[in-house]
Amino acid sequence: MASYLWVLPALGLYALFTLVPLASGVWLALLRWDGIAPAEFVGLQNFERMLRDERLASALWHNVQYALGTVAGKIVLSLGLALLLHRSLRGRAVYRTALFLPVVMSFVVVGILWTWIYNDDFGLVNNLLRSVGLGGLAQDWLGDTRVALWALIAVDIWKWYGFHMVIFLAGLQTIPTELYEAARLDGASRWRQLTSITLPLLRPVMLVNVTLSLLGAMNVFDIPYVMTEGGPANSTNVVALHVYLQAFKFNRLGYGSALSYAIFLLITVIALVQLRLLSRNTAEY
């Protein structure tokens, strides 16, 4: 009993600032309320509305593309860099620090910075392409509906690869060097060592990285909000931005709340599936 009393203050705070808002959010999802006129109870109408919300469907599809692009990009890039920086290398600490820097930068700073880098006229990307004779590839990165989402994905990868790289580095350091020595004695090539030792033993770390980047992709808001506001022509609208627009721009607080819970459920399911995979596929040595 005494132990419960010890945790009671923390539980009280948790209830006040987490559980009560969560519960009141559920109630809000059952209302039609614009924040001005009196609220009206509408039952599950806000949830039904999701089924016929075409913009939600397109936003969800953008999230899926975002997830595919960022997960693949982050994992490949961060793993490659981690393998490089795991070796004995002069100035290794400097490289590690430099590559980690974007992680600690604010989303807004990153968004504004890349908006200028992508500028069609005086941006770094297009001018770099023009200066090396690839002017034909220069384009309006954020203003063209065909490439805008992928331009954002590239920024997200740039922002987060350092974080995943550090996790991979930590994983690499846990692999006993004796395994590599034994493999070399057996005549295994570097490629064989990578595929037969490194990657299988990195699987738990890989799953953590995939899970984190997948959840981040389903939850993404900052980068599209700052860089494109969901445009051009709705081509970069994602679910979290859609929720924000519904709740705070269109003043549909009930529907915005219902959407938030739907995302919460979706992300929970994804996380649970990933955790299950994680618990099943742990390699041992």
Binding site: D140, W141, L142, G143, P232
Partner: peptide, 8 residues
């Protein structure tokens, strides 16, 4: 101007 849709 080129890139008009991406200009803030």
């Amino acid at each position: 101007i080129d890139g008009v849709n991406s200009l803030d």
